[in-house]
């Protein structure tokens, strides 16, 4: 496997598309390339069909939810005429991400990890479906749609797959609130007791 930087340079040269390298600090250092949704289909076709690449096997498709987060940054501000370093919080908007793990069976090579991201988490959650290129994405993209709410543009059959059709939530998102049907242990303490008392209507909770 060539290094990802070479791959990035070669792909950028071949297709004139913009690719962002997403580093992976963990031990295996399987870094990935973030691709733009509008260029995804052309790139996927190129990766599959060009003899030098031949990524003919899309192994794994998955979604990741990155909710809005706040981070603290230090800014220099004029406070009472004196320049001071002030800590400010700012909100980083969240997004949904879809990750594809590609392998080449013909060249016994891989993985090449591609990522697509949506604009945000609620109004614009569309990315390009790669099912027309790799059939193995079909059910997995449906699963990502079902559990994360990512819409795949160009998917032939985008329906819920694991949950039932009338279900409205996206349960794998980090902010999903599950239905309150949990049965609490009969002798709860502290935090669990509070949750349990909130859970049971007054009559039922024989506290």
């Amino acid at each position: 496997m060539k290094s990802l930087e070479t791959l990035q340079a070669e792909l950028t040269a071949a297709l004139a598309c913009s690719l962002e390298l997403v580093p992976n600090p963990a031990v295996p250092a399987q870094s990935s390339l973030r691709i733009r949704s509008d260029q995804a289909l052309a790139l996927a076709h190129f990766l599959r069909d060009t003899p030098d690449w031949q990524f003919d096997f899309c192994s794994n498709v998955t979604g990741i939810d990155w909710p809005d987060r706040t981070e603290k940054i230090k800014v220099k501000r004029l406070v009472d005429g004196v320049e001071k370093e002030v800590e400010e919080t700012r909100t980083v908007p969240g997004f949904l991400e879809v990750v594809y793990h590609l392998y080449s069976i013909a060249r016994q090579d891989g993985p090449l990890i591609l990522r697509q991201r949506t604009a945000n988490r609620d109004t614009d959650t569309t990315v390009t479906s790669l099912t027309p290129v790799w059939r193995s994405c079909e059910f997995q993209e449906r699963e990502v749609f079902d559990l994360f709410g990512v819409r795949f543009d160009g998917h032939p059959d985008l329906r819920r797959i694991l949950m039932w059709d009338g279900f409205v939530d996206f349960p794998m998102r980090k902010d999903y609130v599950e239905p309150d049907d949990y049965e609490y242990e009969p002798t709860p303490h502290d935090e669990v007791l509070e949750r349990a008392q909130r859970h049971y209507p007054a009559g039922e909770a024989a506290a």
Binding site: P179, D181, E183, Y184, E185, P186, T187, P188, H189, L193, A196, Q197, Y200, E204, A205, A206, A207
Partner: peptide
């Protein structure tokens, strides 16, 4: 409904 109330009732809570 999430449960059949005629059949099943949650356990009574006991405060330690």
């Amino acid at each position: 409904p999430p449960r059949n109330d005629g059949l099943w009732k949650p356990l009574p809570l006991v405060r330690p």
